[in-house]
């Protein structure tokens, strides 16, 4: 039996554009656990995802994020990934001219892993998440629909086999069937792999959680986790909404879909 890993977030405070968005987050996820982080728009959920991965433009003010005691904050993004962290983007970035297989091959090679069966594995995972195989030849995320991008994120998660995955609004852009397929795949990684994938599922709605059963549900508001409970908390939120959690706090900047090709023809 492989050892259990722990992702520990302690006293995490972070700012965007000089404005404090995360005001002290504490969260601990162990291998095989699924934690839902819910909250109203502007509560800082997506900021948490970005800060964990190290997205440029987010400033850490205080706190610590470790995997098995190893500090991630302050380290380059790719090292965090190789330490076992994965972020499924809410808006996956288009990278023109770069094939998915090449990106995955470089990522696996950087971790010293085998890539000989990669194409075959990609085809298998594509079938599991319902991604049409011919889309695998496209440059990363280019000309994929919103739903296809989310399936593609899930496929990459499956192939890279991180220890912990942050799913940033994985459900957005997915219809019910697609949601079920990607949730099944994440669940399999969490339940069947040894050790299981630890999941932080960031979502505004409960519909993801109907497919991806959480062990723990956290409610975020104004940059803090204000309540933690079991799956029943999600059901309660479904009934009552977030109104009770809304309080005056810093607004989270709206996450905008990132531009794809920065050189796109402005006249097109």
């Amino acid at each position: 039996m492989t050892a259990i890993s722990v992702l520990r977030i302690e006293g995490l405070r972070a700012a965007v554009g000089g404005k404090e968005i995360l005001r002290g987050i504490d969260l601990e996820v162990r291998s095989g656990e699924t934690h839902a982080v819910m909250g109203p728009n502007g509560s800082g959920k997506s900021t948490l995802a970005h800060v964990l991965m190290g997205r440029p433009g987010y400033e850490v003010l205080a706190g610590s994020v470790t995997i098995d005691g190893e500090e991630l904050l302050g380290r380059p993004v790719d090292e965090r990934a190789r330490a076992g962290l994965f972020l499924a983007f809410q808006y996956p970035i288009e990278v023109p001219g770069v094939p998915l297989a090449e990106a995955l091959r470089e990522a696996l090679a950087a971790s010293g892993r085998r890539t000989v069966d990669l194409e075959e594995e990609m085809a298998g995972e594509a079938a599991r998440v319902g991604l049409v195989a011919s889309l695998l030849d496209r440059p990363l995320n280019v000309d994929l629909s919103g739903g296809e991008k989310k399936r593609n994120e899930t496929l990459q998660l499956a192939i890279l086999r991180p220890r912990f995955a942050v799913l940033d609004e994985l459900d957005s852009g997915l219809d019910v069937d697609a949601l079920r397929q990607v949730a099944r795949r994440v669940e399999a990684a969490s339940n069947e792999a040894e050790p299981g994938l630890g999941v932080i599922a960031i979502t505004h709605y409960t519909r993801l959680l109907e497919e991806l059963a959480p062990d723990v549900v956290h409610v975020m508001s104004a940059g803090r986790i204000v309540r933690t409970g079991g799956p029943e908390l999600a059901a309660e939120l479904e009934a009552s909404g977030y109104a009770v959690y809304r309080e005056a706090g810093p607004d989270e900047p709206e996450a905008l879909p990132a531009e794809g090709d920065p050189f796109a023809d402005p006249l097109a």
Binding site: D78, A81, L160
Partner: peptide, 29 residues
């Protein structure tokens, strides 16, 4: 593009490799 680089890095691709991929990709079409 910083976002493209971040995306590749987030998969575990080292920065210099990510930039090389993006550069070659820039010419691909």
């Amino acid at each position: 593009d910083a976002e493209q680089r971040f995306y590749l890095e987030s998969r575990g691709v080292p920065t210099a490799v990510a930039e090389r991929l993006i550069l070659v990709g820039f010419f691909t079409e």
